[in-house]
Structures are given as C-alpha cells and as structure tokens.
Design a protein around this nucleic acid. Structure first.
Lengths: 110, 110
DNA sequence: CGGGAATATGAACGACTAGGTATATGCTCT
DNA sequence: AGAGCATATACCTAGTCGTTCATATTCCCG
C-alpha cells in the first residue's frame, strides 16, 4: 500500500479527506456525516494515518483527526508537468474555435 | 475501474503517462523504454484508453498513443481545495518565523 | 502470396484489499 | 470498581487487478 496514489484511489478515503479539509473531526463525527460503519471509518483512518495523510490527537476518549499536507503535495507535484500540457490544449482549442468562427462568418457552410 | 484516481494508482501506468507527456509514442517504443513486456504495456494502454487518458492513432501496423488532458484535469480539480490548505500552512509558518524574528530583535506589537 | 513484425486479446493464477462481524482496549463518570 | 461510550484490531470472505503464457489479427514487403 505504498504510494499516495493508491491511498486516494479509494472513494471513501477521498471523502474522508475532503471532510477533513474543512476542519478537523473526531471519528464519531466522520462516522455520522458519512453514514459509514465505525469500524470501516477507523480502518480507513488507519490507512490514512500510516500513509501520513492525517494525524490523530488524543482528546480524552476521542481521537481528533486532522489533515497533513505532505502526501497530497506529492500528488500535486506529480501532476505539475501535465498541467503545462493541458493549458496548451485549451489554447489550441480556442485557436481552433476562432478559426471556425472566422471561416463560417465569411462564407463557407454545408 | 471507474475513477481516474484508481487508474493512476498503478505505478506502471503513471510511468507510461509521464513518458507520453513528453511526446506521443508507439507501443513498441514504450515497451523498450520501460523494459516491460509488450502484453503488459498493451493492457495498461487499454485501461488508459478506456478511461480517456490516452487515444491511439493507427499508423500502418503501429498504434501511436498520445495523451488526453481531461481525466488528469479532474484529479487536479479534486486537489484544488487542499492546495489552499497547504499554502495556508506555509503562510502560517512564515508568519510564525516573522514574529519570532521581530520579538527577538526588539519589543513587541500587535 | 506468404512470412514476419507490431499489437491486441483471452485464460489461468496469485496477490492484495475492502467490507463485515465480532471482539478488545481505553477513558470517563458516578 | 463497574457501566457505558469511543475507537481500534483480528479474522474471514469475495472480488478485483496485474502479470504471464499462448494465440489471434492486421499490415508491410519481398
């Protein structure tokens, strides 16, 4: 279960992460919000914890989980080279549309 | 194999995508560059194709694969909210360091 | 036309993993 | 100290995925 990519491949884990993005939460809160069995939440949290996506602070009987940015930054970094790629494509699309508009305005159709 | 996240969970597929980011390639080129059995390459390409990450152009007996941006843009979009999160952390760190420097240099403010 | 290169597909197999159920641990409060 | 809640862990099962081997398809060229 090494890579950060494998971790976020799981939909429930992505949901948990999104939830934690707005603010830290206890296990019980997550459980209720996502309507997911507690043991399932705990298991996913364990995976997330061991992969460094979250950390737990112990607060009496509850554990409050909060996000850690590093693993997602790693994903973001991998994505970077591709980003350049698709902005270029958007430009190409715009040029294409411009061209189409010009030619259709001046006469050609079918 | 629905989600784009699941697709890029596979290391070999990520490698293939990275390779295609620099330029389009035939199956054989990928096979040689990555030292991976042809049938394996073909299968990963199939998965990538069906998920919209790549398209193949037929050129005689070869198929030349090139990247399509959409699915990765989707990943990028999911990542967006978190990005704000970790830049905030860096900011907080910077403010913290600023404060430390100021207070250690002279009296305080604020 | 036939052989061979480039690529795709199918079947069998092992590895891994998510989910469920049951249970254990730890903490708080009375 | 015991009841009761919050969370974690163990075990099992079913399904999925990647790899390998064997074979099919399509196209080039002599």
């Amino acid at each position: 279960m090494e890579s950060s990519f494998a971790i976020i491949a799981e939909p429930n884990r992505r949901t948990i992460l999104s939830l934690l993005a707005s603010s830290e939460r206890s296990v019980g809160e997550i459980e209720r919000r996502l309507r997911m069995p507690q043991t399932s939440v705990s298991k996913h949290l364990r995976v997330l914890r061991e992969a460094g996506f979250v950390v737990a602070r112990v607060e009496a009987q509850r554990r409050v989980y909060r996000l850690r940015p590093e693993p997602l930054m790693e994903v973001d970094a991998w994505l970077a080279p591709f980003r350049r790629f698709w902005t270029a494509h958007v430009d190409a699309l715009e040029r294409h549309l411009d061209r189409m508009e010009k030619t259709s305005r001046k006469g050609k159709k079918r």
